[in-house]
Simulated scan of single mutants.
Amino acid sequence: MRKCLILFIVMGTVLVGGCNNDGPKESGISLIKTTNPTPVTIGKDTKKDQELVRSVEKDIEDFDELYDVAVIKGKEDILVAYKVKHMQRFHMKRIEKDINKRLEDKYPEENFIVSSDYKIFLEAVELEENMKDSNYSQKEAEKKLQEIIKLKKELT
């Protein structure tokens, strides 16, 4: 009887601990549903930069094969992470090629990092959420963006 009681207490503790809701809210569900993260700029946040990231987001959202886009502009790079509709996953290389071509044609002076990888998308959504916190510095945000870009280059 005593062993059953101890086992019951241990199992209850494990179950309650496993239901912890720490961490960003949107990043946890961003792989399951459309989250529509707000395009953000790191560093100088001018009207021109805001218009640029919104324009990039709109251009990417025009692709019928996609259902979610995250755009983050850093000092030198613009990260574009997107999710592809399930039935379009067979055309991933063509989609990425088309996206790159559209971005390079329309914004030749910008340096784009484009990824359909879920891990990159998740990291971008998490960075966007962290930037909403006033205690999260621009320096930390740029460092995190560079880590995401490095991760993207490692995956290819």
Rank of each mutant, 00 (worst) to 15 (best):
K83R: 15
K58A: 11
D62R: 15
D49K: 13
F90N: 03
D77C: 05
G17I: 06
L5H: 11
M131N: 13
C4F: 10
Q50Y: 12
I148C: 07
E129K: 00
G28I: 02
S55M: 08
Q138E: 13
K101T: 04
Y67L: 05
K97N: 10
K73S: 01
Y107N: 06
I60V: 15
E65S: 10
V14T: 07
N111C: 05
E128M: 03
D77N: 06
Y118W: 02
D64M: 02
I32H: 13
M11V: 03
K73Y: 02
D45V: 00
I120V: 15
I72D: 01
E51A: 14
I99S: 07
A70Y: 00
K150L: 09
Y107E: 13
L7V: 02
G12D: 03
V69M: 06
N21V: 05
F121Q: 01
K153V: 00
L151R: 14
L15G: 10
K139S: 14
E76W: 07
L15C: 12
N100W: 09
R102T: 14
K153Y: 13
P39M: 00
F63N: 09
I78H: 06
F8D: 07
E129G: 07
I148V: 08
D98V: 01
S115E: 04
D62W: 09
R54D: 03
H86N: 14
D45N: 15
M1K: 01
S30A: 08
T156H: 10
I148L: 06
V114S: 03
S134W: 14
K85M: 12
G74P: 00
